[in-house]
Structure formats: structure tokens, C-alpha cells
Amino acid sequence: KYKEAKESFQRFLENHEKMTSTTRYKKAEQMFGEMEVWNAISERDRLEIYEDVL
């Protein structure tokens, strides 16, 4: 289930129109921090996936 959450988060970042190569992690956290997809995984994993996607 956790792996699915990580994959969902990656797809979310890859497909969200507001995500560009210039979007900083903290800005994304402000935009999406309340969303379930954002909070479903640990911050360490979130940051790792974020850096992989951008």
C-alpha cells in the first residue's frame, strides 16, 4: 500500500499542470500540503521522488 502511495505521488507530480522544473519543493508543499496524496508518504520519500521527477 505504501508503494502505491509513492507511485501515486510520482504520477501526481508528473501530471500536475502547476509543476514545472522551476517549482521549488517548499512552494509545492504550500500548494499541495493539505492533500492526501502529499501526506500519504514520509517527507524523506516525498523529497526523493520530487527530486527524481524534476
Score class of each variant (00 low, 15 high):
Leu13Phe: 02
Lys26Arg: 11
Gln30Val: 12
Ala28Asn: 01
Arg11Asn: 15
Phe9Arg: 03
Ser21Asn: 14
Ile41Thr: 04
Arg44Pro: 14
Lys1Asn: 14
Lys27Phe: 06
Glu48Lys: 14
Ser21Gln: 14
Glu14Tyr: 02
Glu43Ser: 04
Thr23Glu: 10
Ile49Ser: 07
Gln30Leu: 06
Glu14Arg: 11
Tyr25Phe: 05
Leu47Gln: 13
Phe9Pro: 10
Glu29Trp: 00
Trp38Ala: 07
Thr20Ile: 09
Glu7Ile: 14
Lys26Leu: 09
Ala28Lys: 05
Tyr25Met: 04
Glu17Asp: 12
Met19Pro: 03
Tyr50Asn: 04
Ser42Pro: 06
Glu34Leu: 02
Lys26Gln: 14
Glu4Gln: 12
Arg11Cys: 07
Phe12Trp: 02
His16Phe: 02
Glu14Phe: 09
Arg44Ile: 14
Thr22Pro: 08
Phe32Glu: 03
Ile49Lys: 03
Tyr25Asn: 07
Ile41Glu: 07
Tyr50Arg: 08
Thr23His: 04
His16Pro: 02
Met19Glu: 08
Gln10Leu: 09
Glu43Gly: 06
Arg24Val: 14
Phe12Cys: 05
Val53His: 01
Glu34Lys: 14
Ala28Arg: 01
Thr20Cys: 12
Ile41Val: 15
Glu4Asn: 09
Arg11Thr: 11
Gln10Cys: 07
Met19Ala: 08
Tyr2Phe: 13
Ala5Ser: 12
Ala40Asn: 12
Met31Leu: 10
Ser8Glu: 14
Leu47Tyr: 13
Tyr50His: 05
Phe9Ile: 01
Lys26Ala: 14
Glu14Met: 14
Glu34Tyr: 11
Arg24Met: 15
Glu14Gly: 06
Ser42Phe: 03
Gly33Ile: 00
Thr20Asn: 13
Leu47His: 10
Met31Glu: 06
Glu36Lys: 08
Gly33Thr: 02
Ser8Phe: 05
Val37Asp: 15
Leu47Glu: 11
Tyr2His: 00
Phe12Leu: 10
Phe32Leu: 04
Arg24Gln: 11
Glu4Ile: 03
Lys18Ser: 13
Glu51Leu: 05
Ser8Gly: 08
Glu43Pro: 08
Lys3Glu: 04
Arg11Phe: 12
Asp52Thr: 15
Thr22Lys: 12
Met31Val: 03
Ala28Val: 05
Lys27His: 13
His16Val: 07
Gln10Gly: 08
Tyr25Cys: 02
Phe32Arg: 05
Gln10Asp: 00
Ile41Cys: 06
Ala28Leu: 10
Ala5Cys: 10
Glu17Val: 13
Lys1Glu: 01
Tyr50Ser: 08
Met35Ala: 09
Ala40His: 02
Ser42Met: 09
Lys18Cys: 13
Glu36Asn: 08
His16Met: 06
Lys3Pro: 03
Phe9Tyr: 07
